[in-house]
């Protein structure tokens, strides 16, 4: 009978633990009145938005900002469907179809190599030839590293690199590689910026593309190459100034997507005002993005 009692006690204990945990939950949860703001969209913007949200939450302890990832298209469709307060898109969003875009800042896409790599500048044609045909860049860089299909950085890269006729290369690999289902023999796909960086850090013959901010912020042994875009005469260094003045061709806007029919809630309006303010520019710059405040 003693063992039976032990078993009973164990069962009771399990119940008590569960009850305790749940009541603790109630207390923890109900202690304060919180307002929740939901933003969703581009994965590339997630880190920036989290940094901005962290600043804002520090100043407004009763606000919770949920940053959901999901790609630029999700940012737009969620805004249309009213599933968020506002959306995030790492591309230009024209007004129409119930949404409008407001530019938050700019971001450069850096062609990145190991610091010990002899190459310092590349042309649009060289990048095109390596990624599409496997031709080595300046007889040095033989391996192309790409991002996975869901990546916004990949989308921006696809739109920035042109074929000899001046079309986006995304049309090309629709026609050649991706339609046949094979990944390009000379290119390795990685799912995160971090893995691209770590690969480049270990190899002097590889090139990859990551957000310019990530290169500037990274302590890793990598550098961004100067780039001569399609139809350009000179090489342009990958710097914030050149992104801002538009000469560096591989760039994209970070856009806030707003609904044209729906007003922002007071809490969301407060956060929106903050990220568009002068105060927020320090955070934007610190995250490696190019501030366009007042420009």
């Amino acid at each position: 009978m003693r063992k039976k009692r032990i078993a009973k006690i164990m069962l009771a204990a399990a119940c008590v633990v569960a009850m305790g945990a749940s009541s603790a939950a109630m207390f923890a949860g109900c202690s304060k009145d919180t307002e929740t703001i939901t933003v969703s969209g581009s994965t590339s913007m997630t880190e920036l938005m989290q940094a901005l949200a962290a600043e804002y939450e520090d100043a407004h302890p009763n606000v919770q900002i949920i940053v959901n990832q999901g790609g630029s298209s999700v940012g737009i469709s969620d805004t249309k469907a009213g599933l968020n307060d506002f959306g995030l898109a790492s591309k230009k969003v024209d007004e129409g179809d119930g949404v409008k875009g407001v530019q938050l800042c700019l971001d450069g896409i850096a062609l990145t190599v190991n610091k010990n790599c002899a190459v310092t500048q590349v042309t649009n044609e060289e990048v095109f030839d390596l990624y599409m045909k496997g031709t080595a860049i300046q007889n040095t860089i033989t391996t192309a590293i790409a991002r996975d299909q869901a990546s916004g950085t990949r989308e921006a890269f696809n739109e920035g690199i042109k074929d000899p006729e001046g079309n986006d290369i995304k049309n090309h690999y629709n026609g050649n590689y991706e339609l046949s289902g094979f990944t390009h023999a000379a290119w390795d796909e990685q799912q995160a910026t971090g893995s691209v960086i770590s690969l480049i850090e270990q190899s002097t013959v590889s090139i990859g593309y990551i957000s310019l901010g990530s290169v500037l912020m990274s302590s890793a042994n990598i550098k961004a190459l100067a780039f001569k875009g399609y139809g350009q005469e000179t090489y342009v260094a990958a710097t914030a100034e050149n992104v801002l003045n538009g000469t560096y061709a591989l760039q994209r806007p970070f856009t806030i997507v707003l609904s044209t029919s729906r007003e922002l809630s007071p809490a969301a309006q407060g956060f929106y005002d903050y990220i568009m303010s002068e105060e927020a520019q320090a955070v934007i710059t610190a995250e490696g993005c190019v501030s366009t405040y007042g420009k």
Binding site: Q50, E57, I65
Partner: peptide, 17 residues
């Protein structure tokens, strides 16, 4: 737990519930 610093406190509560 916030955007500044994600902590495990929510996990204790969620797991319990």
């Amino acid at each position: 737990s916030s955007n500044r610093q994600t902590t495990l406190q929510p996990a204790f509560v969620s797991t319990g519930l």
